[in-house]
Nucleic acid binder design. Sequence first.
RNA 1: GGGCGGCUAGCUCAGUGGUUAGAGCGUUCGGUUCACAUCCGAAAGGUCGUAGGUUCAAAUCCUAUGCCGCCCACCA
Length: 937
Amino acid sequence: MLSKSYDPKSCEDRIYKMWEDAGAFKPEACDPKGEPFTISMPPPNATGQLHLGHAVMLALEDIFIRFNRMRGKRALWVPGTDHAAIATESVVIKLLKKDGMADPRKQLGREKLVARIAEFVEKSKKTIRSQIRKMGSSCDWSRERYTFEPSLNRCVNEVFCKMKNDGLIYRGHRIVNWDPKLQTTVSDDEIVYQERRDPYYTFQYGPFQISTARPETKFGDKYVVMHPDDKRYAKYKHGSTFECEWINGKVRATVIKDPASDPTFGTGVMTITPWHDHVDFALAERHGLEKEQIIDFNGCLLPVAGEFAGMHIEDARPKVVEKLKEKGLLVSVKEDYVHNVAVSQRGHGMIEPQIKLQWFIDVNKEVVPWNEGKRAKGQKAKKQLMSLKQIMHSVIHHGDIQIIPERFNKTYFHWIDNLRDWCISRQIWWGHRIPVFYCPKCAAGNEDPTSDERSAMSGGGLKAQSSKLKAGTIVSVEPIDSCPECNGPLEQDPDTLDTWFSSAMWTWSTLVDPKLTGDASLSLEEILKRSPDYQMFHPTSVMETGYDILFFWVARMILMTTYATGQIPFETVYLHGLIRTRDGRKMSKSDPETMIDPLDMIAKYGADALRLSMIVGQSPGNDSRLYEEKIAGYRNFINKIWNASRFVLMQCEQAGVDPKKMENGKWKIDNLSIADQALLCGIDRLIVDVTKGLEEYRLSDTGDRLYSFVWDFYCDWYLELSKGEANCAVLVHGLRKILQLLHPYCPYVTEELWAQVAAEGSPSLIIAPWPKAGKTPKEFVQAFDQLQVVIDVITSIRSLRAEQNVEAGKKVTVTIHSKKYAKLLESQRSHIERMGHIGTLVIDAKPAKHEKVASAFLKDVEVHLSLEGLFDIGKLKASLQKEQVEMSRYVAGLKGKLGNKSFVDRAPKEVVAAEKAKLAEAEAKLKKVEERMKEIA
RNA sequence: GGGCGGCUAGCUCAGUGGUUAGAGCGUUCGGUUCACAUCCGAAAGGUCGUAGGUUCAAAUCCUAUGCCGCCCACCA
């Protein structure tokens, strides 16, 4: 016999092991004829701990996978972890510093530091793996992958080379976001803006006044820019020069007319610093202006700053102002000027734009063959050469990929419209090394002598930072150490790739056969062709992830996968929202008060309860709040399922039947009570709703449907009605279906109970077939409606008792009049008596007068509760009056509606008929209430 | 500056044109009913942010607007 309450701790790990040992997570356990259903698990960073973001992701994906597995699809969920380049390197460096190492990069050197990080990552992976298991995730561990494993490295190198050959990857001097703290470039998406208040200075610059919050960048400024139509400055001609006194003496400045200058902002005149500003850079490009580096990569001023050289910019700022003031060039200072500064999302350091020789992906070059609109209905595919940007746009626009919720399409398109070339090189050590080698001696392999052509070399060119471009550039999938041409030693590019470069290949690089990637003679195309998993499982079915990484990851997977494989990476994108605290704040590690640790919650309430609490009541793309009472609520529900099963098993035991020997029912209607038939009808309807709901990704809705069916119908009514006259076959049948339908949501408790009630020889629930609704017999549907009448009668009796303060245990006398339902109610007499605590129950078809009773007037049924000894005329009058007022208002409303000619003429017939029926019913009830009022008056 | 989302019961949220708008938690009242107090029964509680409009009919569609939040761009 089951224990009195469900104890998750005693089953979860055992059941998980059972599933895993049985190979149930592998698609090989499914019907080999089933169609594939694939999810690539977004790989958690191989640092630290599982958090609620992971937990919600795992819960959602596990539901998708389990549902489809049970439906007979070949379900594959590929787990893995991410090497998370910058994040991991900075975590480990921080740890080493904490242990007393002042400068780990310097002290350890590249090789040793990378080894240390790898060691840390291995440990961390173990933690993450066990935590993913704790959630009940049914992913195929035999296919676990890691973004930094050799096989994926091969894919990275292959794609890099392919892109380089197609001219989509180029190396050039361009303005990038430099993080002086982490000493690396970061992409546009890795920057956040912070609001700051700083003084805002206006200086005299020759005949003009210019303003800035950053005077320390102004040393090299020698262009003044104004709008071509600005009448105030009409006398200054574009290209004219003048000499003026500036920070370190006289400079010669040139007038530039450009619409980038906003005449309504400040004086309408600005000077520019092309080396350290994206907008100024673009402007300088347009006019072929000189660019000069002012600040070095540590944030200190270069020799151009004269006496300030070597000084950190923060220190230099007030001193520069002081000097200009002494020279009488400071016009005014505005304190507390509000502006935004760019900060590195990862390292939190101030971003300094710099011109630097880096590797980029060209998103605008139209060289990629793509069948546009190949999946769109009624459209002919046309193969054409497109840019990466265009393909990214096309697959969403033409519906090759569907985003849920749809509104994110707009966000996605907007991002693409503003997309610039993607800087992919990083100056950190942890990550995929850029597969480029240089021969310092010869020009071998330098297949692209114009590689720097598109960079910022027009006009005056670079000054302070010379690019040490090697003579020959060789791109290779395999590490090589000597030049194929001159046999001389080669140097590898020291940089690593942006971590998203490799994650962008996640859906397919995890499906290629590692044995093949070890064979250097095979092309990428060949590898894909010969990898059975890739052939079977790609494109994946659903990509489920947080909306916050739509750009970082989802968009880049689309870019990389369509390019590398010619396939979309996934058919559907399901975006979940952020989990927040009860008061809507972001949970943060720095504030442990607000943090909910999923593992603590699992220990306390069980994984099933945690899963439900994160799924039901949330809608895709919207943030949600989580707090312990919510989880406790679903723990109660899980326990309810447990106890319902316990009841069913006890009934079977009492009846001397073994639930495991029970066949799934072919029902003889004669043997079924109204409640039995109603339940069978309810179960059929439930199966239809749940199946449809899960197919349509409406997880919250569907979870709620299951919750209320189990609690409010199966437990509160069906189980109660079966007390004293249990039909074990129907009880067990109903329970089995409920367990099957609930399994995707709460796999542990359902699997544990399944072992008690499933037919002998059935497979584990995880691979049991999904229930199908047959054609529900008419009688069952009718019984469903009849049961509702019985439920209404019992409820009205309970309600009358409570209203009239009848003692809870007291047996009362009740008279029911109903012409229509007398026979039905008579057949349910024992239930009505028991559940209404009735001593004497009279059921009669004819209405009669009653004294000293409280009455309820239902549709076609009158219920009178006798109040001998309790009769309180005042209370009765009050409640009748209240009812009379309510009903009159209701009737008046309906009459008004039906009296409106345009309603009757224009509304659909069914609606009008329904309103008429409502009115008739309401009027009948009102009449009875009024009669009753007269009687007791 | 551009875009998106939210505003529904004390709290957290469902509900995309047609019953008198729902749930969970909380509240009130009553319960040792032999599955479950992680429970059972009953109840109170909302003019669906505001103002217009479309419609026979609006929480739901349109327009404007207020407040809260998010994303993108970024002003020299």
